[in-house]
């Protein structure tokens, strides 16, 4: 597989796996948010417009399954696509600590934006939803993403 194709295969695989786990098997929060991991990793490799487009596509897919807050996921994913792509100009490096922090902040930001946009009727308390659930979800995503990037590096080296 060529180096240019690898991110595309990765993001498609993560997207499919995300929906298999969340929608197909109905696992819910026990499964990591692989869509966000795919978007954040891909955003570091593509232009800001492409990342935004991918974020919007992923967001619309998520919104198609959450009719009550249509648009919240689209905006949140588009935003972190753009922000993820911009971090390439601001932060250089792919150390473990950076990947961990990048994925943690990226996922937490996504949840935070979504929490703001879902509307007061559907919004859960900030402390439980953003600080506790959001923090745990972000940590989960960061750890899974870190393991994934480690695996990708191993396969790329071999």
């Amino acid at each position: 597989m060529t180096a240019s194709r690898r991110p595309v295969v990765l993001v498609v695989s993560l997207g499919v796996l995300h929906f298999v786990l969340h929608v197909g098997f109905g696992i819910g929060r026990a499964a990591p948010d692989l869509l966000t991991i795919g978007l954040l990793l891909m955003a570091r490799d593509v232009g800001v417009g492409t990342a935004a487009g991918l974020g919007l596509f992923f967001g619309l897919l998520e919104d198609s399954l959450s009719v009550l807050a249509f648009g919240a996921n689209s905006v949140a994913m588009t935003a972190i696509g753009i922000l993820g792509s911009l971090t390439r100009d601001l932060f250089v490096g792919d150390s473990r600590l950076f990947v961990l922090s990048y994925l943690f902040v990226g996922k937490w930001t996504r949840d935070f934006i979504q929490w703001i946009l879902v509307g007061e009727e559907l919004r859960q308390p900030f402390t439980s939803e953003v600080l506790v659930q959001g923090g745990l979800g972000a940590l989960y995503v960061a750890l899974v993403g870190l393991a994934l990037t480690g695996f990708i590096r191993l396969t790329a080296d071999s």
């Binding site: 232009g47 800001v48 919007l56």
Partner: peptide, 28 residues
């Protein structure tokens, strides 16, 4: 992360596209 050649993240076309998509997402 370091799989592909350095993309042009801040090109005018990319920025315009990003702004357009961001507005579209808000439109949703």
């Amino acid at each position: 992360m370091a799989y592909a050649p350095e993309p042009e993240t801040s090109g005018t076309r990319q920025v315009v596209m990003a702004v357009g998509i961001a507005l579209l997402s808000v439109g949703t």
